[in-house]
Amino acid sequence: MTEISDVNLWPRVRDGDPEAFAQLFDRHGARVHAYALRRTADPGAADDVTALVFLEVWRRRREVELHQPSALPWLFGVAGNVIRRWHRTRRRHHDALDRLTGLPAPSPALVEHQAEAAAEAASVLEQIRRLPRRERDVLMLSVWEGLSHTEIAVALGVPVGTVKSRLARARDRLDPTRRPAIRASDPRHEVAATPVAALADIAVKEIP
């Protein structure tokens, strides 16, 4: 049987069908969790963020019209907002998160794997820490999540052209050889091109 697209599943979620909501989680829960882990570098926070994303989706379901075949870019956008407004969102779902902490602990193998992923995330986050948040967002969605420029535009609610210009600026900032002379000659900016810069360059090359 052919699986229906998210855009066809969404009306059932909007009408309050828990099974349809569960299907949405089955399709995208793991991707949202991986994204949350890379954004926070904290496995515990990744569980919280994943739960909060889907609880927010449920809470706001009647306000949302899904126009893309996949809900994933939009879910990444929700995740970005949840992370950014972490404290406010946590307050809203305080009781639910209390119940989340009551879940059994993940298996030791999963804990180890998540710790490795978190360590890598921490390293990358350190490399891109100095980027403005808007550029970090497009870079991570492109390089880490593999979204197209169009999908990133949906996730962030900005025009595709803005995605392209932010990616190009992020690439330039991460690679000192591309910086204006004044910045490259400033001792505070004498840093080597980071490994992330190479991937940012690949992301930019998708730009026609």
Binding site: G29, A30, H33, R99, L100, P104, L110
Partner: peptide, 18 residues
């Protein structure tokens, strides 16, 4: 970054919440 077991736990939790 989650396995099947953890996915099932989170799924059950979300279904209870909604």
């Amino acid at each position: 970054t989650i396995d099947d077991e953890r996915h099932a736990q989170l799924r059950s939790y979300l279904l209870r919440e909604v």
